[in-house]
Design a protein around this nucleic acid. Structure first.
Lengths: 120, 120
DNA sequence: ACAACAATTGAACAAACGTTCAAATGTATT
DNA sequence: AATACATTTGAACGTTTGTTCAATTGTTGT
């Protein structure tokens, strides 16, 4: 009811109704977009993208990450947990150390894409 | 001093020094990574990615966005401001309305990439 | 000049976030 | 069993974030 009134109140509505219908038809479903946002959110923090960037080069242990990025193992570990949950990285234990690597090549691609966009 | 001790305390260091040197050499510079993170952060919110997704289909006014996404013009406008600052969208005025569109094709590409990754 | 409308803005607020710290877990060494 | 070390975990903290609300700006029509 309210919504209908709002619709009428906006002159745009009259003009752009078919446009919006087309947009609605073409749009990816809400769930996919929500998941894509969740994915990008993981890349959207400098600590996490630096971790992923290191893992783009090599498989390394938490200790190495901690040294390379000059952050505490705890801070790194918390972020690794998020990256693991998001299926962006995988890990394997070797003695006391745990080695992390990218879960798949998509991750590398996405980072490259982002870097390409900013380096212009 | 403390840092040196930490270094010695970690057996990894001895083992992976050359690896880490190689990683450091290959890594993009801090600034690029930071900017890439900032870019991805913009895609990492469901409201913003939905806005961008609409703009991938068509140039629309704030009013249209507000209706399509079922959110207040104010909320939309706040997010559009961030997208404008990040150079992801551009706008032009036409009478009382302001029409938004994607700033360039990269944006479309990045969204597509993200969607591809989640739809698997 | 005034009313109507599209859009923007700033302050306020709750929710989500990232790091720190202390404690815990798991593995190898003695 | 006990120690040492790599990593993880949970609680706490200050900071950032997204939305709401009320007020404002800019444009059109009367």
């Amino acid at each position: 009811m309210e919504y209908e009134e709002m619709k009428d109140a906006c002159p745009c509505q009259e003009v752009h109704t078919d446009l919006l219908d087309r947009v609605r038809a073409e749009m990816p479903d809400e769930t996919s977009l929500y998941e894509a946002a969740e994915l990008f959110r993981l890349f959207g923090d400098s600590t996490r993208i630096r971790i992923l960037s290191v893992l783009s080069c090599a498989e390394v242990c938490v200790c190495d990450l901690s040294q390379t990025l000059n952050m505490t193992p705890s801070a790194i570990s918390h972020q690794l947990k998020l990256l693991r949950q998001g299926k962006l990285v995988k890990c394997r234990r070797e003695g006391k150390s745990i080695f992390y690597s990218l879960a798949d090549d998509h991750v590398r691609t996405i980072i490259r894409q982002g870097l390409e966009h900013v380096e212009e």
